[in-house]
Design a protein around this nucleic acid. Structure first.
Length: 476
RNA sequence: CGCGGGGUAGAGCAGCCUGGUAGCUCGCAAGGCUCAUAACCUUGAGGUCGUUGGUUCAAAUCCAACCCCCGCAACCA
């Protein structure tokens, strides 16, 4: 198929975005841009998860309605997406009653038709301070660790989803790669979980406890729990409610990008729901890690959280994109520190790409020079293109950039060997050498476009205009 | 016996699946160059591959045991 439907997880609009969100957006964006330029029809979806008790409570604390509360946070996410030059085709919000709710409710009804929704008493420990159920983990010596009060045992009736029924089939789909989980370590992780068998999951909450959400169809006393509410965004955005041509064109998703914390939801619960509804499963789930700071987990409490807005403002979107793609192992945890950022920036962007660009354009200004193909360069570029394709299939963004940087080194070596500055700018030889370098840089720019769209634009613009420009000023 | 990730040059990492001269980036040293953002190019120094034992002609790589570090409550991907 010549289409590519890529999704990010939809961030929870309970807090403003941080650098981890930026990572996921950028990874998905590179895929979208790459496959778009490779000629595929691409649909790139992202959005916001805006329901739930937590948001309702945060809104109350802030003294605003939940609607206003999520509007504010979602606006921040949209701002980050815009500033990062993310090329998403759509943005779905779970509070969207027109676009999202009908599809979510339809999905629920399909699960009922399949006989997979049933009512069951749910017994749990209710903490008055939390105004919610707590688990054993929240307790310390039999009392709530935060509120120091003894929780009550409460029984309530909830809807359940018969996830257990699909345990075996999900396991086999993942095992035989009909549903590819990347990297392999995550695949193994989920398989070991599936081996133990999945349990049915609570699928609703009484409306009195959770009113900020989507009502269960035909039962006003219950509200959908997060599973049917949020996971369904991947299909509601492409008109699952209508099941029209748009839906048929795009579903199943070709790649779903998620973080390691929500692997279970996407590789077990979500496939279970799709199977129950008689829908195909996504083809691939790519799982990225977390960004740490100085070996420690980023935490608002510790205060070592890197702020994506500040970085973009200071160094530009492409500098942040480059760091996230080059320095963070795509499928593993990675570090973000100012020192590392400066090092990467100076070594690769300023002294590498920027400097080569600058020295070639300076020389090119000495005469009217147009790009000329060099067979050796052309061969290397072609090789790089080929390797790049496989690396994109494997989600290895860091290696892809490393390969492109080899072409930059090639350019530097060529200049050094040919010493064009010692030649007469009007000589044929000079024009040939610089022309070849111009065409190499143009090719590098083209290869970089999915990763650093703004820089790629600058490169082609300045080559055409013959003007010298500083792509990335060196940091002190 | 909870689960998972990791321990390879001063730092950060790759290599391990599919054993066979230990590689990359940064940093450091020497030389070259002067077109360029004090940038670029070349060469070099630096490693008992966590420990111990096993398999093998051969182990960073396979097997076993052990030691150490980091995640697995919340904000949060």
């Amino acid at each position: 198929m010549n289409k590519f439907f890529v999704t990010t997880s939809i961030p929870y609009a309970n807090a403003p975005p941080h650098i981890g969100h930026a990572l996921e957006f950028v990874q998905a964006d590179v895929l979208a841009r790459y496959w778009r330029s490779a000629g595929k029809k691409v649909f790139f979806l992202t959005g916001a998860d805006e329901h739930g008790v937590k948001i309702a409570r945060s809104a109350q604390k802030a003294g605003v309605t939940p609607g206003k509360f999520v509007n504010k946070n979602t606006a921040e996410f949209k701002k980050l997406i815009r500033l990062l030059a993310i090329s998403n085709d759509d943005f779905i919000r779970t509070t969207d009653k027109k676009r999202h709710w009908p599809g979510a409710q339809k999905l629920w009804l399909r699960l009922i038709e399949a006989g997979d929704i049933y009512k069951k008493n749910y017994k749990g420990l209710y903490c008055v301070g939390h105004e919610a159920f707590v688990t054993e983990k929240d307790l310390a010596g039999g009392v709530c660790a935060i509120h120091k009060s003894k929780p009550e045992v409460i029984e309530e009736e909830n809807y359940f989803f018969r996830l257990s029924k699909y345990s075996k089939i999900i396991e086999s789909r993942i095992k035989n790669n009909e549903l590819r989980i990347i990297p392999a370590s995550r695949k193994n992780e989920i398989l070991s979980l599936l081996k133990q068998g999945l349990e049915d999951i609570s699928f609703s909450r009484p409306s009195k406890d959770l009113s900020w959400g989507i009502p269960v169809p035909g039962d006003k006393t219950h509200t959908m729990y997060v599973w049917c509410d949020a996971l369904s965004n991947y299909i509601t955005a492409i008109d699952y409610a209508e099941e029209n041509d748009k839906f048929k064109k795009w579903w199943p998703a070709d790649a779903q990008i998620i973080g390691k914390d929500i692997l279970r939801f996407h590789a077990a619960i979500w496939p279970g729901m799709l199977l129950s509804a008689g829908l195909p499963l996504p083809k691939e789930i790519f799982v990225h890690g977390f960004i740490t700071a100085g070996g420690e987990k980023m935490s608002k409490t510790i205060g070592n959280v890197a702020d994506p807005f500040g970085i973009i403002k200071k160094y530009g979107a492409d500098a942040l994109r480059y760091y996230l793609l080059r320095e963070i192992p795509p499928a593993g945890d990675g570090e973000f520190t100012d020192e590392k950022f400066n090092e990467r920036y100076n070594a690769d962007l300023a002294k590498g790409l920027g400097n080569l660009f600058s020295r070639v354009l300076t020389l090119a200004q000495k005469g009217k020079i147009s790009p000329i193909e060099n067979p050796k360069f052309a061969l290397e570029i072609k090789k790089t293109e080929k390797i790049l394709k496989q690396l994109m299939i494997d989600f290895k963004f860091n290696e892809a950039l490393e390969k492109i940087w080899r072409l930059i080194a090639l350019g530097d070596k060529y200049i050094d060997a040919k010493k064009p500055w010692s030649l007469d700018p009007n000589s044929k030889e000079f024009k040939k050498i610089i022309g070849e370098l111009l065409s190499l840089i143009a090719a590098i720019g083209k290869l970089l476009a999915p990763f650093l769209p703004e820089t790629a634009g600058k490169i082609s613009k300045h080559i055409a205009g013959g003007k010298i420009a500083t792509l990335f000023p060196r940091l002190k």
